[in-house]
Design a protein around this nucleic acid. Structure first.
Length: 402
RNA sequence: GCGCAGGUGGCAGAGUGGUCAAUUGCACCUGACUGUAAAUCAGGCGCCCUACGGGCUACGGGGGUUCAAAUCCCUCCCUGCGCA
């Protein structure tokens, strides 16, 4: 399903992923449509801003409106009116976001100033249960067999096993689906990371077996974990790389400053003939870093979430359109941007829409941010094909950081 | 003109002798956001300072009572409602 068009001396490459709903030219950015919608945008807008493929979420669509209903609708792409390729995440991220991260503000990316505090450094999963009980009730609890999720909608309990996740993803009908994994918190101890990784590997195997038994035509990607630890990351890449996955996700927690390094450990070992998707990463610097270390696909909520909260990408860095200075700024968000928003509206108008809390603010900002990231990745691809990646990267950051 | 009710920080609106530089909401200022629990969240928001602390000026104006007043009294001004 994956054709490599150009390979550099290192790990970097440009290629094409073939799916029943069309090709994906890689490296590519994948907008996130968690609940079968790119928040505030129509599929037509998403498509015309240049996105090739979108990613929805298993846990969310299982809860609402239900995967059976989506199966009847013909899959989530058809359901939402998106004609291109689709992906679904397995729900493994919710083991983190509704588990260890719930109510704590912990990000999957530990910033270098976070002092590497390890509040989660509890021995193993059994002791952890009692530790968890002491805290605010989490919505996800992990055991050896799977994850108990509590619905954020009505509190009801739902148990996900690898088989369950795969079944739901079969119903959701995406072209590319992911094995059920445990996304760990970057604050976990090495001991816990190792334990979780063992679990993820067992779950990967079970996901794959179940997928093969059901003879689904969807492409199943396995997910590499291992936190910030080289030994674990390499072990995971080796273990998963030996399995018959159509591609690979690289997931979980990183230290912000050495994410590129962690990705390299993994991509050096993964089979190079299959696509690699870096899960949940999407800031420009991180994408450049990951592409140069061999990643082909990126999904991230950053462009759309930032857009909704007023942070907009420009060629000179991010701006917060809610800042006072933009009230009377009649220039476009980014004068070198070709998106619909920048061609049509001013910063002052966007600032007004945000301050007035008008819905169009989210739409116009999302169009811009997605266009910006999608086209940045597309330009990266072009630069790989033209042997000018380094030059492009250098000129990009010369502007971006100024 | 008489009667009643009111005048509190940009706005709305608490407080009704000390713990009040004054609850809260909005507005405003700034920050955060990386497989979406998110059209969200956090902090700031009288002035000044050697700022964990201290000083000054403030609750329509003026005057008074009190150790102490946004809170009590007098007076003036203003607003709303009712009656003339």
């Amino acid at each position: 399903m994956f054709t490599i068009e150009k390979k550099t001396k290192g790990l970097m490459r440009a290629g094409v992923i073939h799916t029943p709903h069309g090709d994906i030219a890689t490296p590519a950015f994948v907008p996130v449509a968690t609940k079968a919608t790119i928040k505030s945008l129509t599929p037509e807008q998403v498509s015309s801003l240049g996105a090739q493929v979108i990613l929805a979420n298993t846990y969310h669509l299982y809860l609402q409106p239900g995967d059976e209903l989506i199966r009847h609708a013909g899959g989530f792409g058809t359901f939402m009116g998106w004609r291109g390729p689709t992906m679904t995440d397995s729900g493994g991220f919710q083991a983190f976001s509704l588990g260890a991260a719930f109510g704590t503000g912990i990000s999957k990316l530990l910033k270098k100033n976070d002092e590497l505090i390890l509040p989660e450094a509890v021995a193993d999963i059994e002791d952890r249960e009692t530790e968890q009980e002491k805290k605010v009730a989490r919505l996800a609890k992990i055991d050896r067999d799977g994850v108990m999720f509590r619905s954020y909608l009505d509190g009801s309990a739902h148990y996900f096993t690898p088989e369950k996740s795969i079944e739901i993803q079969h119903n959701l009908g995406a072209d590319i689906i992911f094995a059920f994994d445990e996304c760990t918190s970057p604050t976990e101890s090495v001991h816990y990371q190792r334990e979780a990784l063992d679990r993820t590997h067992v779950w990967a195997k079970r996901s794959l077996l179940h997928h093969q038994e059901k003879k689904s035509q969807q492409a199943l990607f396995g997910i590499v974990q291992g936190g910030r630890h080289e030994e674990l990351r390499r072990a995971s890449a080796t273990t998963l790389g030996a399995m018959d996955f159509a591609g690979f996700g690289i997931g979980g927690s990183f230290a912000k400053e050495d994410m590129g390094k962690a990705v390299r450990w993994v991509n050096e070992l993964l089979p190079s003939d299959r696509p690699r998707h870096l899960l949940g990463i999407g800031e420009p610097a991180d994408i450049f870093d990951a592409v140069s270390n061999g990643c082909d696909l990126f999904d991230c909520v950053a462009p759309t979430r930032n857009a909704r909260t007023g942070t907009l990408y420009t060629s000179h860095g991010k701006i917060n359109i809610l800042n006072n200075q933009f009230i009377t700024d009649f220039s476009p968000i980014d004068s070198s941007c070709g998106c619909y928003t920048c061609r049509t509206y001013t910063r002052a108008y966007l600032a007004h829409l945000f301050r007035a809390k008008e819905m169009l603010a989210a739409t116009l900002a999302s169009i811009h941010n997605l266009y910006y990231i999608v086209h940045m990745v597309a330009s990266i691809r072009e630069s790989i094909l033209n042997d000018s990646f380094n030059a492009y990267r250098d000129s990009f950051f010369q502007n971006y950081q100024s």
